[in-house]
Write a protein that binds this DNA or RNA. Structure first.
Ligand SMILES: [Mn+2]
Ligand SMILES: [Mn+2]
Ligand SMILES: [Zn+2]
Ligand SMILES: [Zn+2]
Lengths: 141, 141
DNA sequence: CCGCCAATTAGACAAGGTCCAAACTTTGTC
DNA sequence: GACAAAGTTTGGACCTTGTCTAATTGGCGG
């Protein structure tokens, strides 16, 4: 077992294969942007990071690929800002703290917060997940 | 005290004044759409309802007015769908159940679900609120 | 009726995101 | 290797939600 498997292109390629995703150059770069930083990024931010040095990837591919990763459950989507979606390389159960002024999203350490009493799901529906978002703002603003 | 104060234009006008909002014709129609139905509506749905019989209100006014209502805390914004915002006439503490396939949002009866252990807010930030969204989907889909 | 200010409006604009047909790359087969 | 089929990427058109602006309307006090 590697110490930091997602800091190398090799480790990322392995991760992609594990999720039944063909590890192409563009997909590796996009996954690397997310998994090496372990941050919540918007599609636009991913685009910026991947193409920072040299153009690697078109806008269409960034969106296609993020949606592919989500379908394959390799990343998670976090909807919290009306203007854009965040993509989260951490798919384990955890919740979020959202700075509504700065527009930044950080994880809430698991255990700091918990849900008690799963609500009764109406007939014909099944639960897919529970999202908790703590909205915060700078004290002065 | 009226039995159903938000089912009449009179009651709505009163509500607007109570929130320091000048009760114009357009504002009354928009508030009436939300408060008489007690549903979660998108801006587009509000537009459709208000202008169903006869054109009452422009798109600009719908957006301006919903934002005004939100600023005055008369309604609440619910961000749950990447494609659009929902507006909620119920501002009391409660959480939501979101059907990701049908795109519909309903309230979770208070008490059915609860948060334990408010997470430690980082320095320089203050909590504004906690949103809980239970994502569900039809069993067959 | 006049003047003022609040409110509304049409339409241009911006940003996030999807779609499409063409081109390019990889894979499989002979 | 040659070729076909399948998979992937691409630019750019396109769509939707939402904002902005400059012009117009409307209520109201005097
Ligand atoms: Mn908004
Ligand atoms: Mn969008
Ligand atoms: Zn996270
Ligand atoms: Zn609600």
């Amino acid at each position: 077992m590697d110490a930091a498997p997602f800091c190398t292109r090799q480790g990322i390629a392995e991760l992609l294969r594990h999720h039944e995703i063909n590890p192409t150059h563009q997909r590796i770069e996009i996954a690397f942007a997310l998994f090496s930083r372990r941050e919540h990024l918007s599609a636009d931010q991913v685009m910026g990071i991947v193409n920072a040095r040299v153009p690697e990837c078109s806008k269409a591919t960034v969106y296609n690929t993020l949606n592919l990763f989500r379908e394959k459950r390799m990343i998670r989507e976090v909807v919290v800002d009306p203007a854009k979606v965040f993509y989260d390389p951490n798919t384990s159960a955890h919740h979020h703290l959202y700075d509504v002024v700065r527009g930044t999203l950080v994880d809430i350490p698991p255990g700091d917060i918990e849900v008690t009493g799963m609500p009764s799901i109406p007939d014909g529906l099944e639960a897919e997940g529970v999202d908790i978002v703590v909205r915060v703002r700078p004290v002065d603003a």
